[in-house]
Amino acid sequence: MATPDQAVIIATQPAGTSGGAVFRPPRGLRLVGRYSLLGLVTLIVLFPVYTTVVASLKPGNKVLQNPLVPDAFTLDILREAWSEGRLGRFILNSLVVAVLVTVCQVATSVMSGYVFAMLDFPGRGALFLVFLATLLVPLEATLVVNRRTVDSLGWLNSYQGLAAPFLATAFGTFLLRQVFLGFPDELRDAARIDGAGHIQFLWRVALPIIRPTVGALALFGFLSSWNQYLWPNLITTESDMNTVQSGLRLLRYSTLDKPNLLMAGTVIAAVPIFAALLVFQRQLVRGLTAGAVKG
């Protein structure tokens, strides 16, 4: 990335020196142009969010007039959506499942990544291929059978049913394997001489080093679990066990003539993850780009 100084040098480089007489407007004008463009694009990107928030704060009789103008304000609709949509219960469900998925994904990925990077045993190559193969299978191709599996385990409408298919990922395994491959041999040897077993080594020595990767993986796992839509819809038949996402589907069909109620529910469902991302933006970027570079 260009440092600010370099950027200035590039930006102020006289363009005409090599004969190409290109007109360049003065810097001030270009800045105004760029900021207006940025502002315009921001308005377009945020437009759906804006109309949603405005609608969620308007009383029912006002919502159809001037959808763009916040000319009336009430918190009643948000309250009503919270209780009628049972969003407290559904957020709790989503939270339990997402935490379960995140913790297990991190644990399984650390262990399997460690094994593939640092231990040698017969069949390692073949097993690694098996892990690799799972990356090619889209979730949608497995859910028909997974629903039957979860049904026969008696796990419909349960936290374990919602979480089970996502407790381990090949993506996490690869991510951690890459990190462990970068470990110097001396580190493991020194720990072994001190009498540390695998688990002790992972917990005491490795954890501080792999923490940034684990953070990225954890956030990534949490987010994808929280945002699951099809799976909870497939295995939830009792209203109590809906997640936020499948709960929004219920709200959509129970509020057909009350758009502001539905929008209030949408706002409430969006807020926790928005807040989390504001705090953990850096981890998320690292998680997403790790997939691009290494995957």
């Binding site: 297990c104 094994v115 045993f121 097993l127 193969a133 859910l143 599996t149 089970a164 298919p165 381990a168």
Partner: peptide
């Protein structure tokens, strides 16, 4: 090695490859 690999392997086999 197998013990540490088992949790991932079981999940991936039961919920990705078997299905």
């Amino acid at each position: 090695a197998i013990a540490m690999l088992a949790p991932s392997l079981v999940i991936l086999v039961v919920f990705v490859l078997y299905p």
